[in-house]
Design a protein around this nucleic acid. Structure first.
Length: 460
RNA sequence: GGUCCGGUGGCAGAGUGGUCAUGCGGAGGCCUGCAAAGCCUUUUACGUCGGUUCGAUUCCGGCCCGGACCUCCA
């Protein structure tokens, strides 16, 4: 099946042709670990998780690298503010990130390198840039010489002149050109630093991704992804550094970027207080990470997405329908199925909303299936399509029962009340039966009487 | 100022030059002791003004509205 992806560099959908059809390599910019991941950090993780799943179906071998940036001035500032050791802050934040992303059903990348473990590689690239005449040392800093690269700005579509003209930030006096950016900067004794040919210092923002992508994927690899906000300056500068250090190589062949996120109809911002972290959403919706994942995949990855809590509630209800049908079919073995419809949707630039509509079609087929054979086929179709999206793979009973909340009586208490109610139903005491059901309903428990006299339940 | 993206039915959200998105919600029905779930039927769209065309929501242009980026926010 032909995979088409939108390439930021060419600004259109193109056919994906791997450099090596036996081994696809891609890199996604990971988090800078100084704070909880917010929902905007989660979008690229979930989107590129789907890409990884798809690529693994299409190609024999895939290497997916996502870094952790654990040296950065925001980390230093946060550590100082908290009075916490830098290492402790980055470790703690990275661990939390892993937990949160796992809750969203994102599989870990194949390699997750850390910036602080690749200082040597960064220094090597910077040295090569100086040797090539693309970087210079000034006032303890090493800067990339932007005018030395004629096609700088291709990815973002900004010319150097535009960037200089639009600059909002004061230009540091040691820069030869206002567009030049820092590769290496000096560190004071209280800040993290490493010995280098230019004295004790620390890396600039962009160099770590160049160093780590090249180390694990080679000087030329297939796909580089990230959020749209990284196009400039981060990815633009990554390209500049990487290609000028290795003029013979191409760096990333395709660039993919996910769209922005809003929250509750407004631009996410800390001042508006609508900056949802994944952690707090999981606290409010315990065990419902998959609903958050569904919200993120219900909108095409390049479209702007307005993230709302109501959206999570809706997505949870949608997943209930899927798991309700799967619970009904629990005794039926799923037939092997390849989900060509979901595959086709995803192969067209990750059209996850269309793919999800095919999941709904499979759900309809499962609900309408009259025979076990039809049920097995529909269930197989649903699960196979869901696997590509990382959806509907949980145990239906576990999902539907959810996590017990403080307000309810717990699973055993619920079972006991249901038994009481069924006794009442048998003796036609519907008043008592309905009272028990109403009480449970108020506690968020929904009952469903089956034709054979049994009753199943779920947490709303 | 420059560059770029988007505006689809009550809501969410795909897609297409001329029969259907899909889901939620609403209405009616079947089923049920009543519900719940499921099934069936049904309801309403393509910002605006022009152009191209036999025909445009889909292509082109203007305008309006919203958003993003222009040196370190995914």
């Amino acid at each position: 099946m032909t995979l088409r992806i939108h390439d930021t560099l060419r600004r259109k959908k193109v056919v994906f042709e791997p450099l090596d059809p036996d081994h696809v390599r891609f890199y996604v910019c990971g988090p800078t670990v100084y704070d909880f991941a917010h929902i905007g950090n989660a979008r690229p993780v979930v989107v590129f998780d789907v890409l990884a799943r798809l690529l693994r179906h299409l190609y024999p071998r895939v290497t997916y690298v996502r870094n952790i940036t654990d040296v950065e001035d925001k980390i230093n500032d946060r550590a100082k503010q908290l009075g916490e050791d830098i290492r402790s802050l980055t470790e703690r934040t990275a661990r939390q990130f892993h937990e949160d992303m796992a809750a969203l059903g994102a599989l870990p990348p194949d390699i997750e390198p850390r910036a602080t473990e690749h200082i040597t590689e960064m220094i090597a690239i910077i040295s090569a840039l100086i040797a090539n005449g693309h970087a210079y040392e000034a006032d303890g800093h090493v800067l990339f010489d932007v005018p030395s690269m004629p096609d700088y700005g291709r990815l973002s579509g900004h010319s150097r002149e535009e960037l200089v003209a639009g600059a909002r930030v004061e230009v540091a006096p040691y820069k030869q050109d206002p567009a030049d950016f820092v590769l290496w900067k000096p560190s004071t004794p209280d800040l993290p630093g490493w010995e280098s040919p230019w004295g004790r210092g620390r890396p600039g923002w962009h160099i770590e991704c160049s160093a780590m992508s090249i180390k694990y994927l080679g000087r030329t690899f297939d796909i580089h992804g990230g959020g749209q906000d990284l196009i400039f300056p981060h990815h633009e500068n990554e390209i500049a550094q990487s290609r000028c250090a290795h003029p013979d190589a191409g760096f990333a062949k395709y660039w993919m970027h996910n769209g922005y996120l809003m929250a509750e109809g407004e631009k996410m911002s800390k001042s508006l207080g609508n900056f949802y972290t994944v952690h707090e959403l999981l606290e409010e919706f315990p065990g419902r990470g998959e609903a958050i994942r569904l919200v993120l995949l219900q909108t095409h990855y390049r479209q702007p997405l307005d993230f709302t809590k109501d959206g999570i509630v809706q997505a949870k209800a949608t997943l209930d329908r899927f798991y309700l049908a799967l619970r009904e079919a629990a005794g039926i073995a799923a037939a092997a199925f390849e989900a060509p419809d979901v595959m086709a949707a995803l192969s067209d630039d990750l059209n996850t909303p269309l793919a999800i509509s095919h999941l709904h079609e499979a759900l309809g087929a499962l609900n309408k299936a009259a025979t076990d054979k039809e049920k097995a086929a529909a269930k197989g179709r649903l699960l196979a399509g869901g696997a590509l999206l990382g959806l509907v793979q949980q145990d239906p009973e576990a999902w539907l029962r959810g996590a017990a909340e403080a307000s309810d009586t717990g699973d055993a208490g619920i079972e006991s009340l249901i038994a009481q109610r069924n006794e009442a139903r048998k003796s036609k005491d519907f008043e008592t039966a309905d009272r028990i059901r109403d009480d449970l309903s108020k506690a968020g428990i929904v009952l469903e009487d089956k034709p054979d006299g049994t009753t199943v339940w779920r947490r709303a």
